[in-house]
Simulated assay, not measured.
Amino acid sequence: MSFYIGREASKLWKRICTESGIEINLLSEKWKYILGGLIFQYIHGFAARGVHYIHRPGPTLQDVGFFLLPELGQDKGYISETVFTTLFLSFVLWTFHPFFFKIKKIYTVLIWCRVLAFLAACQFLRIITFYSTQLPGPNYHCREGSKLATLPPPNSVLEVLLINFPRGMLYGCGDLIFSSHMIFSLIFVRTYHKYGTQRFIKLCAWLAVIAQSFLIVASRKHYTVDVVVAWYTVNLVVFFVDKQLPELPDRTSAALILPLSKDSKAKEENHKLLNANSGDPAEWI
């Protein structure tokens, strides 16, 4: 029994090392896109922090979702965050599954290049939108009488540049249209729907993002319009941006040769190692 476990652990370690080499080669080619996407995440956070300085609390606007959905209350705001965190972490873990599983369809670096491109495009539109019109935030900490509804003038440029993560993300005001949580959730679910393999997980993911839509409104974290605009904007952006990007290579194709080396023989060997196609069934998992 211990021999079998040791043998399986050895094969797993070999797969992790092989996959790491392939992903490092891809990263050496695509690092500019990854870095650019990560930098834009900071720009988006910086912009959301900036709009908080000009946010002015006021009466909560009339909203059909507030009439139709019962208010969960401030003490139950964690429910929508739990659903979002589950979607977020599940997707991140899935993007790294090629390091551990024999059957795989994606490359981690390439899928994140794609996801970051979707995020940057949607967040760019979001920044323009919430700076165009500032609505009084419906969240409890953004209402009149709350000390967190407005930020005092900054004492220095550094205070503005430091986003105060994660407090600035959790207690921001003014960045309403459209929901950032919905941007991430919809992009992640759409990406898994296209490149994932488990139909049941796809169904659960779509049900989760639908439930999150209602929970966000019921928690009074956003107006209904913030969620509705996110649904059609994100889907349209992903649809059009996806058409402009080169399609990801399908790793399930036996004829695929990885574009990682000028030596075609080395490419073929990388592909065989990556998919455990050594020709010896005893080496498969």
Rank of each mutant, 00 (worst) to 15 (best):
I210C: 12
K202R: 01
L203F: 15
Q212P: 12
S213Y: 05
P166C: 03
A208I: 12
I187A: 05
L203P: 06
S219M: 00
I183G: 01
L161D: 05
L215E: 07
I163K: 04
T191P: 00
A211H: 01
R199Q: 06
D175R: 02
H193I: 03
K194Q: 15
Q212K: 14
I187E: 09
L170A: 15
Y171N: 13
F184Y: 14
H193V: 04
A211P: 00
C173D: 07
R167A: 13
V209K: 04
I201F: 10
A208R: 11
I183Y: 03
S219Y: 00
F178A: 07
Y195S: 09
S180I: 02
V217K: 05
T191H: 01
A208N: 12
M182G: 06
S179G: 09
D175L: 03
A205H: 11
R190K: 08
T197V: 13
F188D: 04
Y195G: 11
Y171W: 14
H181C: 06
I183L: 05
L176H: 05
H181F: 12
A205P: 05
I177E: 01
A211G: 15
Q212R: 13
L215S: 06
Q212G: 15
L207T: 05
H193A: 14
C173H: 08
S213R: 07
I187F: 04
L161K: 05
G168T: 07
A208L: 14
F200Q: 13
G168C: 08
L176R: 02
F178V: 09
F200E: 13
H181M: 12
L176S: 08
I216P: 01
L176I: 10
G174D: 12
N164M: 06
A208M: 14
G172A: 01
I187T: 13
A211V: 04
H181W: 08
L203V: 15
K202Q: 00
V217I: 15
S185H: 07
W206T: 02
D175W: 06
Q198W: 11
Y192W: 10
I183K: 02
M169I: 11
H193T: 13
I177N: 03
Y195D: 10
L203I: 15
Q212I: 15
F178G: 06
F178K: 07
V189Q: 03
G172H: 00
F184G: 09
S180V: 02
Y171G: 06
R199Y: 01
V160S: 01
S219Q: 00
L170I: 14
G172P: 00
F165V: 15
H181L: 12
I163Y: 02
A205W: 13
F165C: 09
W206I: 07
L161G: 07
